[in-house]
Design a protein around this nucleic acid. Structure first.
Lengths: 406, 406
DNA sequence: CATATTTATTTCAGTCAGTAAAATATTTAC
DNA sequence: GTAAATATTTTACTGACTGAAATAAATATG
């Protein structure tokens, strides 16, 4: 058997099976034991044992939901299983420059409540950061007359370089210090298991658990906001790179010695597609004073302004080039373009899709599907919640093992 | 336990352990049982069982090689284990446009002999292809007075889209037909297990087994020849993409609507770096008649020809841009630039390395190491042999299980 | 030189996850 | 009501792995 003290994420063989069953129930919504057994290529006996444990732990429940029409023959009817949403409350937080958005979800991922906590400072010390997170959580719990003690897990998304396995932040724009190990700070400052992860990775997690990546093994999520982010899911797992700083799609170079980027380098995709890049372009065309954000540019373009249209079009072309390169390199099952409508429109046009199509190496097989997912404001915190649910699942399954021992 | 009839590559739990032990002995050269146990995080008892099986099968042997100076204390000395090179003969083939190169190696990867088989036709029918491979193999075996019957495995590298798991070739420039399933043709036409794989992936395999990727989990191999290829190793395994057509680095776009590429698209890296691209550039500068290959351009540049130098320099800049993007996306442990000296010199210059360094997003952690590996002509067939050895290892370990049954 | 000590490896008697097959449960068909 | 069909649970077993004890092979020490 495998050692179980390796890392907080390691699981012994049995827990791994239970977790696989749990995750399969989650992705399928509701499913019978028989179907789980055949889907996971395991014996019905194993599924019976695993589901019994999960039900005993309150993570899963049997439902009276009508068995699918398919098996409307005779024989003992299948009993459908589904997650017991009420079992655990999980919080997902996204820390942005001026606000922390908190989303409380049940164990199925259904929104319970949400809350915005305004920030005074863009950057905080690690200790102040944890205290502020706690405050934001308490405010959110107040909304449902609950307490922070009830939370089964908290997951925090921030921009920056994060080693999620160790709760270690190499660098983040929200935190004054570099190389902070939050594991001790979290356990001291918060009453429930807490996790931190890079925000683009969290959106990928959200797509995998609840969104258009459900059940897929290899897919990419491109996040479109102020900048461009990338989450890479390979073989069902987030790929983070060796030093935890892979997936820097926004700073992939699309032009030799091209436009100047915030990062100080030239030719980054973000320097053509990021909203500051678009606004910068508009100043050149003489519209500077009127333009406050990207939607203004859209308005201008839609009302026939050739220059605004040209700015958006170039961003689209560069974006298409970048996405086609992703396909050429990763050949994923699908690519999900994730963002708010405002910032995405010009990046999902037919011209852009053609640019992508024409930039991918020709093969017989059809192009990976490009899915467009327009999220609301809660995209990031929902991603955090998704990661939180996953981590809580792992914790709860591990606790199961302990209960069995005596 | 896992089912063992899944795919030809699947292994049950015990075989997986034996294979892990075998692979660990291979990467470490010679190692004691105790060290294997601690390296693989398993018990000494398990290692004893696994190595006993491997020794019985003739794959591994004990050596009298002096135990490493480190343990020159008292106590029972460790017994070192190493591969038994004589146990199996493996052939690696690379099919190029005008020649098939065959390399025969022993089970440790040592060259036994090599042979070049000239081809009349660039393209062959699947049946003719297998017959030609057989002929080339027989010629190679003749050189050591051996027979094709002695081969434990044959591995063939070709350019194109290959689904190696199924021995299925979607498309290759060497074969007239598309979508050919070679599994039947091989079993009919050749007396030993035969495998086919994309050639760039094979070079990655060679680096992993014998070269500078030994023991690494996440690394990239960029092959430089007529075109530019990429092999991706993630988590110790070749990453091939969903449709088997990932890693098309040569056709990643480095310039919007840039130079025309052989593939018909514009702006591909290969259209700036491939040797045909360099020669094309030179025609513009008026040197056309004298230039036959890339080394001529090097000669010109070294003798002070500004135009030749400029052609090489631009290729280097584009190449550096591409490599920096690989690092930004994959954040690997290292990148290995693999090729013959002639075609690489201008892509490994200090200018190019600076371009790479300046194109990678800044983090605290040091840049992934960029290793330059200059191979001879047998690079490709050595890669094929590496893959062949790996596949033969899997087969032999599986045979072990069968012998145990009765 | 005999003995104690140290380290490597093997043997042995469990342990535990997973399984096949039998048993049981629950339904429809007739 | 009984037979047939299908789902799930129970039971007895298998086999990979393990810890602990046994054995092996060396050095240190007197």
């Amino acid at each position: 058997m495998l050692k179980s003290k390796d890392s907080p994420n390691s699981l012994d063989q049995r827990n791994a099976t239970r977790l696989r069953v749990l995750e399969h129930i989650r992705t399928r919504g509701s499913i019978s034991r028989t179907d789980i057994a055949s889907a996971l290529q395991t014996s019905p006996a194993t599924v019976t044992a695993a589901t019994a444990d999960l039900i005993a732990a309150g993570l899963v429940k049997e439902t009276e939901g009508e068995t699918s029409a398919k098996s409307a023959k005779r024989g003992r009817p299948r009993v459908l299983l589904q997650l017991d949403g009420r079992s655990h409350l999980v919080a997902g937080l996204k820390v942005a420059r001026h606000v922390i958005s908190v989303l409380l979800v049940d164990f199925e991922g259904n929104e319970v409540t949400s809350h915005m906590h305004q920030l005074k400072d863009v950057q905080m010390t690690p200790v102040a950061f944890v205290a502020t997170v706690r405050l934001a959580l308490e405010e959110a719990c107040d909304r449902i007359n609950g307490s922070i003690q009830q939370l089964a897990g908290v997951s925090i998304g921030i921009a920056g370089l994060v080693d999620a396995k160790r709760n270690f932040v190499h660098w983040s724009s929200s935190i004054t210090d570099r190389n902070v190990d939050f594991s001790y700070l979290f356990s001291e400052g918060l009453p429930c298991p807490t996790f931190v992860e890079n925000d683009a990775n969290l959106v990928a997690k959200a797509e995998q658990l609840f969104g258009q990546g459900k059940g897929l093994k290899n897919f990419l999520v491109v996040t479109i906001e102020h900048g461009v982010g990338l989450g890479i899911v390979l073989d069902g797992k987030l790929y983070r790179g060796e030093r935890g700083c892979g997936a820097e799609f926004g700073h992939a170079k699309v032009q030799l010695d091209g436009a100047l980027c915030q990062c100080g380098q030239r030719g980054c995709l973000e320097a053509y597609v990021g909203d500051y890049a678009l606004l910068r372009e508009m100043t050149v065309t003489g519209h500077s004073s009127e333009m406050a954000n990207v939607s203004d540019i859209h308005v201008q373009a839609n009302s026939g302004d050739q220059r605004a249209a040209s700015v958006l079009a170039r961003a689209g072309q560069m974006f298409g080039l970048g996405v086609s390169n992703l396909i050429n390199l990763f050949d994923p099952e699908c690519i999900i373009l994730s963002g708010a409508q405002m910032s995405m429109e010009h990046l999902c046009s037919e011209d852009v899709m053609n640019r992508i199509k024409n930039g991918v190496v020709n093969v017989d097989a059809p192009l990976p599907e490009i899915k467009i997912h327009q999220w609301g404001d809660l995209m990031w915190s929902k991603g955090a919640a998704a990661y939180g649910i996953e981590q809580v699942s792992i914790l709860k399954v591990q606790e199961l093992a302990v209960q069995h021992a005596p």
